[in-house]
Design a protein around this nucleic acid. Structure first.
Lengths: 232, 232
DNA sequence: CATTATTGTCTCATTTTGTAACAATAGTAC
DNA sequence: GTACTATTGTTACAAAATGAGACAATAATG
């Protein structure tokens, strides 16, 4: 990680949403020997588009390309600059805080993105400073460094606002899904519950769903249809 | 303007909306002797919050403080880096493009904000590189440098999305206004027209308006009430 | 075949929205 | 003053959207 390749004082952070077991989850990194948790983030190369830097980082962290990404806010308060936190992390990783990684102690303005991905295909990979890169239920997050908690909150807020405007479900679910699964996604994001029949009527009225074959679960009841979204 | 005071490679641009004569307008700067138009922008000091940098710039450009501001996107494509444009501007202003202002030719990632302001109170002031800082109707903008046209489009898109979520009218109108004036604002932003009676019913149902005395225009018809928003 | 759980659809009441009508003015013309 | 005009605030009714429940269909089980 060579400082001179990157735009100074500029970083990005990503809130990576996945859905499993009726729950909305996000990926968090845990730094070696510190118990500190953070959002996956990175830096922007001097000869790279901002969006591409984020996609590069996401690919490294999840193994996925072609990810649904939304930029939602840029965090630029001075209060987010806490060099002592980064110093702790560097020391815990055996780096000299006055060595070649010293630039990590600088002030960073961070452009925040959220990603929606199909949970099943992710292979979380920690980076060199981290032990783990793991899914956490959004309602049970550990304490996060710097302003990362605020970033998550703003991501959630934004995701909720987009729930009715964009086809959020499309990116969190497999290609084919049942109406119930789709409803669970909407409920997890909005934090409320919907009436089954109203939800079904609303979704079908949007005319973005294609109905496929039934899905036999082996359970003793009528089998639901599988649906997919019309446009890829 | 001393390069070393600022965060390198980071700028902001502002889309300043005002409303007058039933039209939505924005403030544009014209650079000396070039015929080039741009959004008012600036740079962030190393010891300054991002938001504060923007407020500082807005105050300089408009004379106003306490402005309604929304950050809406950060533009970070390589394609927005066109050093020859900035070079032209520097030369036209009698600066040496290899002199102390050379840093202006660097690549900049720009955080974009829009502001909503009461047109009447603005005293537009050009900066040192500009002849003018003038209002332009959003449908009749001159050609803009770099990606500033894209920035305006995205600002408009964002403003439209916020039209029903936030009290947009509050910031573009005087303290007291008629229902018709409010409707004109909504129509100018949305680009559509609304039925008078439905609009009135909708606004009153929101219960955010206080009705005041009537406004006598001197015209031969019933005088409309003046309204204000409940919360400041 | 009866039972159970769940699904897709339909029905009806309620609420919201679209549309037009109407009465109330504030001026002008006379 | 009265008649007339333009615009406003409100009401009335139709149409559409939504909330809430009923109901039939069906995939398993015993």
């Amino acid at each position: 990680m060579e400082s001179s390749d990157f735009i100074p004082n500029l970083a990005y952070d990503s809130v990576i949403f996945g859905f499993s077991g009726d729950q909305l989850k996000i990926l968090l990194m845990e730094y070696h020997n510190t118990g500190l948790f953070a959002l996956p983030g990175g830096f922007v190369k001097k000869t790279e588009n901002l969006d591409d830097a984020v996609r590069r980082g996401l690919a490294e962290r999840t193994g996925l390309t072609h990810i649904y990404l939304e930029q939602f806010h840029t965090f630029g308060n001075l209060s987010r600059h806490k060099p002592e936190v980064m110093k702790t992390i560097l020391i815990a990783n055996g780096h000299d805080p006055n060595g070649p990684m010293r630039w990590l102690l600088d002030r960073f303005i961070s452009v925040a993105y959220y990603a929606l991905i199909d949970y099943r295909y992710v292979i979380p990979r920690p980076d060199e400073l981290s032990d783990s890169c793991t899914w956490y239920h959004v309602d049970q997050l550990p304490e996060l460094i710097l302003d990362h908690r605020e970033i998550v909150n703003k991501a959630l807020e934004n995701l909720r606002e987009n729930l009715d405007r964009k086809l959020v479900g499309m990116n969190l679910l497999p290609e084919k899904f049942t109406m119930q699964e789709l409803q669970r996604v909407y409920e997890a994001i909005s934090g409320t519950s919907f009436r089954r029949t109203s939800f079904q009527r609303k979704m079908l009225a949007m005319e973005v769903l294609i109905r496929h074959e039934k899905k036999y679960s082996g359970k003793a009841h009528k089998a639901p249809y599988l649906y997919s979204f019309t446009r890829k």
